[in-house]
Design a protein around this nucleic acid. Structure first.
Lengths: 156, 156
DNA sequence: ATAATTAGTTGTATTTTGCAACTATTAAAT
DNA sequence: ATTTAATAGTTGCAAAATACAACTAATTAT
């Protein structure tokens, strides 16, 4: 049973790596967002709206794993600041599709710029091929995690 | 400048992978914690106390990137539920060192068990060598992110 | 001996959150 | 065709989380 205990140990190490990884990335997100004058969640919303095509509020809430109402309020804040516009769906007027305004697009790009710069900076001393292999493995890992049905909708 | 735009694209992909990764792992944490009757933050605290030796409250707050007071209250909740004990530091009575009670250790192990099982399940169809290379790359990535000084203290 | 510093707790106001109740719109059933 | 269900989204409300500031207790520096 030595093999099994070894596996358990590996999984615990994996868990630890995830803890560190997501905490550090969380910090990066927080920093970049606040630097641009919005909260982390608000920048998440901008990101999701940008990615998604004609996203509705409920879809957004599912993506963020937040309640309907909470999401509605966050969106409200972004609409007030004129980063997001609510458009009634032409086919079904119950739906509200969310789009970025020009101002919102600009802000989102600013945040993205900050984050990618930080990430680039992290990897600046890494050789090209190491970088490539890392990206490959992380891509595969992400796919595995995305597919595992934990709850809510995985981010596309 | 084709090389540069390629690099930017790679970084944006990286950012996206981080978003998915940390969101999915966040869900896993939430699920495992709540399943064991505590909040995500509380399980974080249990984990940190377990890892750290004679952790003090301020150290813990720094680890979690939370305010002193907020952390104090969370710890208070865990002490009330008898998962954590506060011990006065023998050398300096200002400090309070935090330790897991027997009950707390058991709970922490339960949460760990849940998480590692989930992670193991994710990887169940992955060949051994792929798993190994993945772990290696993630380990290196984590180390890179840990070293990048974003703010607060990186989790050891 | 006194002042300054440090660790941690508690008061208070703000923010975030989810549940439930509500409105508006569309789909289903009789 | 009219009534009933269901669905999308918003708002009221109470609970939880959070940070700042004021506080206590203990230690260190002057």
């Amino acid at each position: 049973m030595d093999k099994n205990s070894n596996k358990t140990q590996n999984m615990q190490e994996m868990r630890h790596l995830f803890v560190v990884l997501s905490r550090q990335f969380g910090l990066l997100q927080k920093e970049s967002s606040q630097c641009c004058g919005v909260t982390t969640i608000q920048s998440h919303i901008l990101y999701e709206i940008k990615q998604g095509y004609h996203m509705t509020l409920n879809q957004l809430a599912q993506r963020l794993c937040l309640d309907n109402s909470t999401t509605s309020r966050h969106v409200h804040g972004l609409v007030e600041k004129e980063y997001v516009v609510r458009l009634p769906h032409p086919e079904d007027r119950r739906y509200v599709t969310l789009e970025l305004s020009e101002k919102g697009k600009k802000l989102e790009e600013e945040i993205t710029e900050m984050m990618t710069t930080s990430i680039m900076d992290m990897f600046k001393d890494l050789p090209e091929d190491k970088m490539t292999s890392m990206r490959t493995e992380i891509k595969d890992l992400t796919e595995i995690m995305r597919k595992s049905d934990i709850c809510c909708y995985p981010p596309f």
